[in-house]
Design a protein around this nucleic acid. Structure first.
Lengths: 127, 127
DNA sequence: CGGCATCCGGGATGATACTG
DNA sequence: CAGTATCATCCCGGATGCCG
């Protein structure tokens, strides 16, 4: 991983650069539903319609879903395709930059399962 | 990665389980500063004092830092160690569960650099 | 009917001053 | 140094309406 060249080094200057890049990138993912949306777009193997996303991102409301999708589109993470039909059809997909988040999201989901299993084990065996 | 067994499968039931685990885990990371805090704890090779975190998590204020740290501690991601001294000394470190986030955070930071470089290239070469 | 915008209340977040 | 208290601000959520 290229990250090794900058990460966990002792040079304060490098650490500042690292912190800045991280901050900028994380700012793009900031927002209550963005990571969930991205994970769902990964879970689906192709583009998702707005209504599909609304179902998969459990607990979100239309307003927030639209807002977060707009920001993700503006930041170049997802693409939005409108099909001029009646009834309307809008599809959302991951952009190249969004797809590049794949390894990170996969690890995150892996962690989610690890965590779930660990907690299940504890509640089953409270001895 | 164990994730392959559940992720991106076509079984709707598995997808529900996957979505639930992901949602629960992401909820733990929900909060404007949590991922930044975790990344900084990774960037440092050891525990960090409160004041150190305050400097490294740029833009955060004391109240939010304390709040997010409390939640992370409650959710078992970080540990908090108090040294009975004057002046007080409190160190924060990643727990086992927090350390398990390492691969995911490393990928995330890797993505951050990739993104930064891509954007730098675009702004340098607008042709 | 599907995708999206607007208005308003409540909770999360931010700035500042203060305490042990 | 680490944490608390208070008040202002902003994001989020629900309801409703618009438009093709």
């Amino acid at each position: 991983m290229a990250i090794e060249r900058d990460w966990r080094c002792d040079d304060p200057k490098q650490q500042l650069i690292w912190a800045a890049a991280t901050r900028d990138a994380l700012q793009v993912l900031e927002g209550k539903w963005k990571i969930v949306i991205i994970c769902q777009l990964f879970g689906a193997k192709g583009p998702l319609r707005f209504s599909e996303l609304e179902k998969r991102v459990e607990g979100v409301n239309q307003k927030m879903l639209i807002q977060q999708l707009k920001e993700l589109e503006k930041d170049g993470i997802v693409t939005r395709t409108v099909f001029p039909q009646v009834p309307p059809r809008v599809e959302y997909a991951l952009s190249e930059m969004g797809i590049a988040l794949g390894p990170s999201m996969a690890e995150l989901i892996d962690w989610a399962f690890m965590r779930r299993d660990a907690r299940a084990a504890v509640s089953q065996d409270p001895a």
